[in-house]
């Protein structure tokens, strides 16, 4: 996918992602796996992933307005983006992270 090169990146090109999950559920595990795979494919070497388990740190849920889990938040570069679900739909994830233009998503 060459579209990844069109991503507007931060100065240093780093993408900071945070994934909120609630426990080690199948959905959580699927989301983590899907995210790692997508990042390796499109953002190799310039991403960081932080996984927050709300079962362990529930106090973090309100701060980032988490309602649904899993929720993926792109903290950097701004603006903040959020994608919910187990991230099985790669195209929607990329749209949600502004990595491909919205119009091409169907």
């Amino acid at each position: 996918m060459s579209a990844a090169h069109d991503v507007p990146l931060d100065d240093d090109g780093q993408v900071h992602l945070r994934l909120y999950v609630a426990g080690q559920t199948p959905k959580s595990l699927a989301a983590i796996a899907n995210l790692k795979r997508l990042c390796e494919e499109h953002l190799a070497g310039r991403y960081t992933i932080e996984v927050v388990d709300l079962q362990v740190t529930p106090q973090l849920a309100a701060g980032d307005q988490i309602v649904a889990v899993p929720t993926l938040i792109r903290r950097l570069p701004p603006p903040l983006r959020r994608v919910i679900g187990d991230l099985s739909n790669a195209e929607r994830v990329l749209v949600g992270l502004d990595m491909i233009p919205r119009s091409s998503a169907t």
Binding site: A61, I84, G85, D86, R92
Partner: peptide
Amino acid sequence: IEQAGDYDLEGLFVRLGH
């Protein structure tokens, strides 16, 4: 919010529970 796959409202539950 972009939805990419199945989700649940566990986040809300966690917040409420907390």
